[in-house]
Structure formats: structure tokens, C-alpha cells
Amino acid sequence: MEPWPALAWVLLLTTIPDLLKTAETRDFTEQDIIYLHPSTTPFPGGFKCFTCEDAPDNYECNRWAPDVYCPREARYCYTRHKMDIEGDSVSVTKRCVALEDCLSAGCTPMDYEGNKVCTTCCEGNICNLPLPWNETDAIFATTSPLSGSLRLSKSYAMTFCLLILTFFISS
């Protein structure tokens, strides 16, 4: 056998392990989002969230998230990130949620299997792009007041004060 074919076989066999290596995962970035022409919302204030259930990592979740508007009763984007003892992603869940689902934002201590879960909520169109990795990231971020009841109670208080003032003026 000539030396060149033998050398070609040696080179080919040494590159096969490199070809069989699994691809490294990468994070989903804003550059991965393709902004098309703006579409009309199904109702005023309509928005979208990345949505997935138990995806293996953030990239796979965001990459395959359906492009649909959140229902009217949902006001926030929710993210649940489960990590193993080394800090690698085990699962990612994202969806549209109501206020009640956001009140427990934060991280749990490691469980008996060595997993930690961090949850976060945000308000805004596709605001749940990143994952919460620790207590600093696992927050409930809003851009508007959490409850309309504060405004309602202020208006009731103002009405009550006007009634009392009217009563004293007419007496």
C-alpha cells in the first residue's frame, strides 16, 4: 500500500472523535429574534411571552416558542429554571401568567437530588428572554403598579373627604 492512502486513513480516523462531539449549547440573544412588521394586538395592551414546557435549556425554549399573544387575564411573563448541582440547566418552563403565579419569585434551596429552582416574572412584550440563575436574577419586575385597588381606595378616600367637607360646610 502506498504511504498516501495510509496517511489519509490515519488523518480521517483521528478527526472522527471531533466530529462525534456534541455541540455546545448557547444562550438565546436578542439577535436571534427576528422582528417582522408590527402586528395588531388582539386587545389593547396585548403582549407575547416566550412559552415552553420543560425545555432542556434557554436556547431551545426560546427557539421553539410559539408566536402567540397571551390571554387577556395574563399580565406577566413567567420563567421557571431548574438547575443541577453544577449549575447546568435541567429544564426551562416559560409561559404567560396572572399576578398570583408571580408572588413566589425567587430561588429554592438545593433539594435532595441536588437541584435548585429559580423563578422570575416580568411585565412586557417577550420580556422573559433571559433565565434566572440566582437570587439576584429571580425577581418579579413590573413596570406598572401591582394593584388597581390602591387607586380605587384613593378615589374612595377622596370621595369620603369631599362628603365630610360638604357636610361641615352646609352645617
Rank of each mutant, 00 (worst) to 15 (best):
F47Q: 09
C52K: 03
Y35G: 01
S155I: 04
A105Q: 02
D101Y: 06
P109C: 01
T143I: 14
M1C: 08
C70E: 04
T143N: 14
L152Q: 11
E60L: 10
L146N: 03
T142W: 00
P42W: 09
T143W: 02
T142Q: 09
C121M: 05
T25V: 11
I169Y: 13
L131R: 01
L163A: 11
T108G: 01
L99N: 03
F47S: 03
P71L: 04
I126P: 00
D57Y: 04
Y69N: 07
A98W: 00
W9Q: 12
S144K: 15
E60V: 06
L12A: 15
T93C: 06
G87Y: 09
L150W: 06
L11N: 12
E2L: 11
E86G: 05
L165W: 05
Y112R: 13
P38W: 02
L13T: 13
F160C: 06
Y112P: 00
T136Q: 12
W64C: 03
V90S: 08
M110L: 15
E113Q: 14
I139E: 07
K48G: 08
E113K: 14
D54T: 06
A55T: 07
E113D: 12
C61V: 09
A141F: 06
F47W: 03
V92I: 15
S144Q: 15
N115D: 04
C122I: 05
T119I: 05
F47R: 13
A74P: 00
S170P: 00
V90A: 05
P71Y: 01
T41F: 01
A105V: 01
R26A: 09
P38M: 05
V97G: 03
C49Y: 01
C77Q: 04
N62D: 11
A98I: 11
Y69I: 02
T93V: 11
D67Q: 10
M158S: 06
N134D: 15
I126L: 15
S89Q: 11
F50T: 04
C96Y: 07
K116D: 00
A138S: 06
R151H: 10
K154C: 04
A55E: 03
M83L: 09
A8C: 12
E60Y: 03
C96F: 07
T120N: 10
D67N: 14
